[in-house]
Simulated scan of single mutants.
Amino acid sequence: MKTSYAIIIQAAVWITIWAVFSFTGNTADRLPGFYLLNTLWVLGFIVFFNVFHRMLLPIFFAGKKMLFTGMVLLTLTGYVAYSVVIDINFRIPEKLSAEARKEVRKKAQVPLEYLIIPSIFLGLMLFGAAASVGGLSAFEKKKKSEEEANRRRLEAEIALLKSQINPHFLVNTLNNLYVLSLTEPEKTPSGLLKLSEMVSYILYECAKPMVPLALDIEFIENYIALQRLRLPPNAHLQVDLPSVVPQEIEIEPMILIPFIENAFKHGLTTKTSCELLVSIQLRGKQLTLEVKNPVLPPKPEQSGNPSGIGLANTQQRLEHSYPHKHTLSIHNDGQTHVVKLQINLAP
């Protein structure tokens, strides 16, 4: 498609140049040979331009400067020779009356420099035009190549972050389920069923760059249902999730769950009363997540990294996947830890 488009553009340019040469000025006394001359001129333009643009510029970009210079000089010499031959055989006779043509055909009477210098000048102009077009094409190609490389790099980074989050999440969930099996074994089968659904989501949906928001919220519901099985009596959990989510709205998978997981991991205790809030609001394609949990003294194994790898990686994923389309606020006053995240999910 791009090659066909370039051919059409070139054809339009050359036809326009031929028309300007042929039909501007006083055309009343022009003979048929005049139009043949212009056709030969434009054909010379086309050949020289494309030889330089398509054959010689790649030699230059390949770093073969000496070969490029020699080929340019050779091509320019060939173009000048072609122009001089056309001038001698077509242009000069057309400029004179029929009676004077025989005399002018004596080529020795025409100073050769009058033919060579304009041809060199015109050849250099074509050289500059071809170099400009080739340089612009090379710049655009390099720009697209860099953009593609950056896109692939970002995709690789996101894939790495997601691959780190999934095992991290599963390890935490399995630990919770293990504790549940020891303390309340009758709840373990229900927990295993929820975990099975969550693992299925991770295996079959999280490999995709985007998933329906409805599926991600269903995953969150399963996670919260699993956490309810182990809530201590002193814990109060408030959950507010959208009941209806349009199927066309998509989100990057598992980008919300680390904030929710963090609240359960660091906000539950059996020693004092604790209140947790998980709220997801959807207005149009503007999603708002709010998570609140009490601030508790860090456990010894958590003192070095209280937030865990999941939360840190999620912030990086937000920067990669939703640049300038999200706001994240994390506030900790020593009593309550509050996360507020807004994401514009419009494509």
Rank of each mutant, 00 (worst) to 15 (best):
K106E: 12
K106Y: 14
K107P: 06
A108E: 09
Q109R: 13
V110P: 00
V110T: 09
L112I: 02
L112A: 01
L112S: 02
E113P: 15
E113W: 15
E113A: 11
E113G: 04
E113V: 13
Y114D: 14
Y114F: 10
Y114P: 14
Y114L: 08
Y114R: 09
Y114Q: 11
I116D: 09
I116V: 15
P118C: 03
I120V: 08
I120K: 00
F121I: 09
F121P: 04
G123A: 08
L124F: 00
L124T: 06
M125A: 06
M125K: 00
L126H: 08
L126K: 05
L126M: 08
F127E: 00
F127S: 00
F127G: 00
G128R: 02
G128L: 05
G128P: 11
A129V: 05
A130F: 00
A130D: 00
A131M: 09
A131K: 04
S132D: 11
S132Y: 15
V133E: 05
V133A: 13
V133S: 08
G134E: 01
G134I: 07
G134A: 11
G135V: 03
G135A: 13
G135L: 07
G135W: 03
L136W: 14
S137A: 12
S137C: 07
S137I: 11
A138G: 10
A138V: 07
A138L: 02
A138S: 04
A138K: 09
F139L: 13
F139W: 15
E140Q: 12
K141L: 13
K141C: 07
K143W: 13
K143H: 13
K143E: 11
K144R: 09
K144W: 10
K144P: 11
S145Y: 15
S145N: 14
E146Q: 15
E146H: 06
E147T: 12
E148W: 08
E148Q: 09
E148S: 14
